[in-house]
Design a protein around this nucleic acid. Structure first.
Lengths: 340, 340
DNA sequence: TTGAAAGCGCTAACAC
DNA sequence: GTGTTAGCGCTTTCAA
């Protein structure tokens, strides 16, 4: 049989109410009894029942974590790291995180995660880009939700976002400081806010340093943001005989594809072309040369989301607070000063 | 305010007990009232509180899922797939799965997952190889646990395992049927039951087909089971001038490393050496040539674990039942008939 | 500073 | 067949 608050009360010679009060360290308990109760708790190895507590306090102690199946099953442990951050931070407030995936193509036929229909969570964290339909459906339930690394086109929500604009600037400025002036940008899925922001950062850096923006140096027509897209984008640049001494790819996957093309065409990295990516994925280090990039602190994204969730749950904050997680340049071997 | 069983009872003009009985579809309720109750439930969109239910039924409705941080963050989505299987199957019985990681080097300093110390789960699923210390600590809590793809050296537990022996046989027999007689085996971390079983399967197949086991064709000295180990193992074989026309690697990672070495040494795959792996990881398809392997149904492993957990929870089964999940040969391009 | 008691939403005897 | 009632383990007024 489980040790209950009654057992503790009996052992300490007090009422259950008193035990409850010391548990919530209420100060109007005398040091004396407080000590007795604590001792009893310790000796009995008492653990309060979350169930009973939740029942009276009208909260489940759970947070739902939703992402698309694709994102969760990605080879790159991007979202798993974010989840881990959330789970880690959840320990601070004794929350549990219920992870579930939704079909990448979420349609009317698909039902919402059970923990929302069943109201088994106090709030929902949505990681990565998700179908608008999901959001619409989620709105019917009276639960706070927080986005990570995505921001729905309409509506005003709480979110934890990557500081993409700044990252884009830093990446580009790094290249500029190395003496480069002909800096290409390749991106894909430009609808995605994150990608678009990195592009904005690129443009801002150019402007700041008085370098003219040249549209022929920019590829934004790729549909996807994978290796193949990167390869394709750079090849198309090269095919059109566009000259550039440096390249900023909107993410590492594309950067890696780009390097593949560059290598194939016999261009030396970084001697002839400097390359910088974005994300800091695991395989960067195994590239030849290792890829210089903007590191995104995945774990921190999860941590911040959980913290924000706590604030929202405690009504400490307006429902549309945003937090921008800083990124930083990681110097590896794919960039070098412009050779004359 | 949440819709409760009382609201339903009032609306249907019955007692809460009746509603509860309908919910658990007890048959001694007249079709008539049953219908009324169901209607009320539907109209009010009533969702029973898991909290309240759990409190009286003395079960949390949660299952804990533990794996090491390393395993969860692996590039290859092996354990994430297993988790997904568990989570998917959990829907059948309205369970929630609480995923948490433990440090890969779990020591006395590390505490157990909160959901176990706090008794917030009804059972625990442990995926992958974990430190013995974890298991010892877990035993103190009176909860059933089930292992996936690992079996502790001591003790007798419930487990969902890959049919490695059979898989090892099938892989080897495939090679034998192709005419190969000089079949090398490379393995690492032979303490791991799964690896060792695959090795046993290899030996059994040889014996079955009257092929003499030759220890010089076997490398079991590698510490790890990664790409580098595979590369190293095969190179050492080649360095010693050992002849073989086929190779069975204990997993795909090693197989891929092996192919790298083979390619470097100028050996054609499959013309000069046929290669079979084990696991069916994502990158198999991108190898040159695509790797023939034994496919492990990761999702199914998770499903089976959850099913087994249900049986154990319902006391339908002894605590040490094991289920072996079948594997199958996936033919790709890395094997071919022996060339004379 | 502490205790008595009500009640969170549900289930399960036990009556009727 | 259906209702009454007593909890499950906790928190929280309200009294004392």
């Amino acid at each position: 049989m489980r040790v209950t608050i009654k057992d503790v009360a009996r052992k300490a010679g007090v009422s259950t109410a008193t035990v409850s009060l010391v548990l919530h360290d209420n100060r109007r308990i005398s040091v004396e009894t407080r000590k007795r109760v604590l001792k009893a708790i310790h000796e009995l190895e008492y653990q309060p029942s979350q169930l009973a507590r939740g029942l009276v306090m009208k909260q489940t102690g759970n947070i739902g974590f939703i992402l698309t199946e694709d994102h969760f099953l990605r080879t790159e442990p991007f979202y798993t790291r974010i989840f881990l951050g959330t789970e880690f931070e959840a320990r601070e407030s004794s929350h549990f995180v219920l992870l579930t995936t939704i079909p990448t193509q979420f349609t009317e036929e698909n039902s919402l995660p059970r923990f929302v229909t069943q109201q088994s969570v106090d709030g929902i964290i949505v990681a990565g880009k998700v179908p608008q339909l999901l959001i619409e459906k989620l709105k019917h339930y009276n639960m706070p939700f927080i986005f990570i690394d995505y921001y729905p086109p309409k509506g005003d929500y709480s979110a934890v976002l990557i500081d993409n604009i700044h990252g884009g600037m830093v990446a580009t400025e790094h290249l500029i400081k190395l003496g480069h002036k002909e800096i290409a940008f390749i991106g894909g899925d430009m609808e995605h806010p994150s990608i678009n922001e990195r592009y904005i950062g690129y443009k801002m850096a150019l402007e700041k340093h008085g370098i003219r923006y040249r549209s022929e140096l920019v590829i934004t027509s790729e549909e996807a943001t994978g290796k193949e897209s990167g390869l394709h984008a750079v090849c198309s640049l090269l095919d059109r005989d566009i000259k550039f001494s440096a390249l900023f790819a909107c993410n590492d996957a594309m950067a890696i594809g780009a390097m593949e093309c560059l290598r194939k065409r016999g261009l030396k990295i970084p001697d002839q072309v400097s390359v910088v990516g974005f994300d800091d994925i695991e395989s960067d280090v195994f590239q030849d040369p290792p890829l210089t990039t903007i590191a995104v602190p995945k774990f921190d994204l999860g941590i911040e989301a959980m913290r924000l969730m706590r604030e929202v749950l405690a009504n400490k904050v307006r429902k549309n607070k945003k937090v921008l997680v800083p990124v930083e340049l990681v110097l590896r071997k794919s960039t070098s000063p412009l050779k004359k």
